[in-house]
């Protein structure tokens, strides 16, 4: 059963579409990886799921449902109840996301109290349980620690503890390891995946790390300039990319450049607000670009299970089909 379903979701800031008509779904117990370079709308799209887009940003969608409830039309109070309990989010930088003025225990108990309630003793007990669950040693004493007294990895564990405190059905992790030491990254991901399996949560994992997605995600979405350019089962997308951008992303990995002097990269950057090309958004950077691409924007082809947004999708040999 699909847990979260969105159809043609857009987030606009004035005339600028930070997220441009994306559609995908997440099933129970599924890990969905979202990849793409900076500025491709990964974080904005996930913030919009949480209802965290501030004015003047606007969210619109043909459909945005969570467990068959329409998130956009439901009353604000009801949505706030779902936020943080059924849908929880882990942010990129744990050091700046935890409030520096409150202890770890206060911030965990606050989440519990808001959504579940209980006596002071129960709440404290549950907080200790959660800290143990995310692998923090001496959890009792950590309750009274302030965020600045914790390392980055510890803080991220605390955020994970808060996120899973109310047994969410869907967990959104926005680059959960980007701000961490390389040695800690693997531990945090292992923890996340273990918890996901144990609790059968849906997990949306937003990351730059393609190898990680290939390893843990069931399905993957590749975003570029606010659009989904390709999506499908992780193994398929990575072994036989259909979109030139996915191909280029994979080619840019250091592993692909073994023996070469330079990493392979597409020239240029993601188009910003004022330099959006007329046709396909990738056309200025695409190695296979045609005149048709420059003038006409492609539409998404295929099903929701395997979509690609390109006039000339690549065949299994990695060449344009037509």
């Amino acid at each position: 059963m699909s847990l979260l379903k969105l159809e043609n979701l857009s987030v606009t800031f004035g005339n600028f579409r930070a997220v441009d008509q994306i559609s995908y779904s997440v099933n129970e117990g599924e890990v969905l990886g979202i990849v793409g370079e900076s500025g491709s709308g990964k974080s904005v799209s996930s913030l919009s799921l949480m209802g965290l887009i501030d004015y003047p940003g606007k969210v619109s969608a043909d459909q945005l449902t969570f467990m068959d409830q329409d998130l956009l039309s439901m009353p604000e109070a009801q949505r706030r109840k779902i936020t943080g309990s059924d849908i929880a989010m882990i942010f990129q930088d744990p050091m700046t996301s935890l409030n520096p003025c409150f202890t770890v225990g206060y911030q965990i108990i606050e989440a519990l109290k808001t959504h579940q309630g209980g006596t002071k003793k129960e709440l404290k007990h549950r907080a200790i349980e959660l800290l143990t669950l995310v692998g923090i040693p001496a959890p009792e004493s950590r309750l009274s620690a302030y965020p600045h007294q914790l390392s980055g990895g510890m803080s991220q564990r605390v955020m994970i503890a808060i996120a899973i405190a109310c047994n969410p059905k869907l967990l959104i992790a926005d680059e959960p390891t980007t701000a961490l030491d390389v040695t800690i990254q693997a531990q945090i991901i292992d923890l996340l995946i273990d918890l996901q399996k144990e609790k059968q949560m849906g997990l949306v994992l937003i990351t730059h790390d393609l190898a990680l997605v290939a390893e843990v995600a069931h399905r993957v979405i590749v975003m570029y300039a606010g659009q989904i350019v390709e999506s499908g089962p992780a193994s398929e997308v990575f072994s036989a990319p259909k979109h030139p951008y996915t191909q280029a992303l994979l080619a840019s990995l250091p592993e692909s450049a073994a023996g070469r002097a330079r990493l392979q990269a597409l020239p240029g950057v993601v188009p910003g607000q004022y330099d959006r090309p007329k046709g396909c958004l990738l056309s200025p950077r695409c190695p296979y670009v045609t005149d048709h691409c420059r003038n006409v924007e492609p539409t998404s082809q295929g099903s929701l299970e395997r979509q690609v947004k390109c006039h000339t999708p690549l065949n299994t040999q990695g060449r344009p089909a037509a």
Binding site: L47, M50, L52, R80, K81, I82, T83, G84, S85, A88, M89, F91, D93, T96, S97, L98, N99, P100, C101, F102, E110, A111, T114, H115, M159, I162
Partner: peptide, 26 residues
Amino acid sequence: QSEYIRYAWSKGISASRIYFVHALKN
């Protein structure tokens, strides 16, 4: 505008708590 306020919103706590507890103390 800080990250911890955005995070507080994502925890689903009430607006008055966010303004008068989380933001005001800072």
